[in-house]
Design a protein around this nucleic acid. Structure first.
Lengths: 300, 300
DNA sequence: CATAATATGCTCAAAATGAGTATAATAAGG
DNA sequence: CCTTATTATACTCATTTTGAGCATATTATG
């Protein structure tokens, strides 16, 4: 069995939410995601990543999950004598440290993908994007219809609803349409800040994964402080999803699932009636399945 | 930036369902999953995999998704002068060809992981497994409690419900407890057929992913023939989930989601009243989001 | 013609969801 | 002190979605 030789690197999408803004850890003043080589000394990919993230930043990474492995010939910087395989991970961290000079720094998700934030309604960049997408759609009569459908679906146009999970599909569509260009290429208008190589695509992959995951696994709590109010929790979910939620129903959802318990204390800095403080019930992870089956089971 | 050198291989978990039995494509008479080197000629990982699967088997792979990338030092066969990175994919194929001599062959999922099939109630292997797990749990007094909780959760013991999605957790637990051993090692009792290196773990990863996915994406149809009865569809889902479903409610679920349409024809070989034949409505993929948000949205 | 085996239609209570209304508790401005 | 703004929290109510079954329809077989 012949085995191909390649360079392996680990790339991290480390996310924190501070001040109701989801942020990603970057290097090179916001131009790239932190990455490092996968070395012989590492026991597993995951532990390899943990090691150098720990080393490069003061942050302990709570949650870490593998995202995707990329090795596209035409979208990665090639290194002489072999391909680069990029193994990406999504990590969630609780706090944001004050960055020292030249240290890794945090940048908002929506600086890179501004069309993804719909918390204050449809963002202004959307109109430009839709306009340019229209141009791209009509530029080839043969595939016109198919392109139209894809765009309508991904961006919630022509009556389709906006689906916050389609982060990656949207990015890929814009990439294909030539509407987002990465570092080095010319970039017109405000279609978000570019990044080195395909790092923005990896960020989009991480955002998509996290947006999907918060719906069926209690991972948001990895981003919360020890105790928090229900509104803080809601704002964090909203920041990630890029959407606003119904307050009372959100609260009902959280409480009926027994995800949290009162700490007894309350927070009065909220500008209104003081809010009870809650903490995550870690025990829940061992109690229930937290997802249920969704298939119509029979009893026997 | 230093980049580590490694050998890259692609591994496929190709699944088909025939005769209500989920099967996986194997090589070496069932001892290993098909794999091949990732080569410079391949444009992307995915296209690389497609190429040699197409070449090694007659089957067109309909659906293909990346599973996981492994590089554990202690669980993989090491090749001199570097690490092996295994990038695994899950593929769904519609048919099973008659295998020629020495050709890839299909083996049932549950031959490798017999405790995963609960269609006829709790399978008989479970009692032995639980017994041996008990031994492992009690063998270390310090971590006794934690082990007990993990086992109860993964295998649905002490009142916990069986969760079909936890395929990987169960395999990992058994591995840790030394109850499954792979090719070469001694293996007592019937804890499933071993495989080469960590291929059984990769199979478990694929099974888990597919069991989770059929619940929120219409991927089952990739395994079905062009037209099928609703019972055939149900039996296929049951085979994958390792569970039996409630017939009328299953039918309601499928129909209310507009996933299928009648072909007009019907099948009378069923041994009872003839069943209407249906086909998958491919258009559904472009129409709705097929998942919905699960978050309590606010209207504005 | 009865029996077995499946297909398909329908019912009904319980639970979950979407969209509010109502009330409580605080701070700030006058 | 009273009014207003702001947030918290409790409840309501119609609608949908589930879970669990009963009932009837159409076949083939003995």
């Amino acid at each position: 069995m012949t085995i191909g030789l390649a360079h392996a690197e680990l790339i991290a999408v480390l996310t924190a939410v501070t001040g109701n803004e989801p942020r990603v850890m970057t290097v090179r003043s916001g131009d790239a995601l932190p990455s490092g080589p996968f070395e012989l000394g590492h026991r597993t990919l995951q532990s390899g990543l943990r090691e150098w993230v720990q080393e490069q930043t003061a942050h302990p990474v709570g949650y870490l999950e593998q995202l995707y492995t990329f090795a596209d010939r035409d979208r990665n910087t090639e290194i002489l004598g072999g391909r680069t395989i990029s193994i990406s991970y999504l990590g969630l961290v609780r706090e944001q440290a004050a960055p020292g000079a030249g240290q890794p720094s945090w940048h908002g998700w929506y600086e890179y993908l501004p069309w993804e934030d719909h918390r204050s309604g449809r963002p202004s960049v959307m109109s430009q994007i839709v306009e340019r997408l229209d141009g791209w759609i009509d530029s080839e009569t043969a595939r016109c219809d198919q392109r139209r459908r894809r765009a309508d679906f991904a961006f919630g146009l022509s009556g389709a609803a906006w689906n916050e999970d389609l982060v990656l599909q949207r990015y890929e569509l814009l990439y294909e349409a030539g509407l987002v260009s990465e570092a080095g290429c010319a970039q017109q208008g405000n279609s978000g800040r570019p990044m080195f190589a395909d790092h923005r695509r990896i960020l989009a992959t991480g955002m998509a994964r996290l947006r999907a995951k918060i719906k069926y696994r209690p991972v948001v709590f990895e981003l919360m402080p020890e105790s928090f109010t229900l509104l803080q929790l809601q704002r964090t979910v909203e920041a990630l999803a890029g959407l606003t939620l119904h307050k009372q129903n959100f609260r009902r959802l959280i409480e009926q699932q027994d995800l949290v318990e009162e700490t007894g204390a309350s927070e009065s800095e909220t500008g209104g009636r003081p809010a009870k403080l809650f903490r995550f019930r870690h025990a829940i992870l061992e109690e229930r399945e937290l997802a249920g089956t969704k298939l119509p089971l029979s009893r026997n």
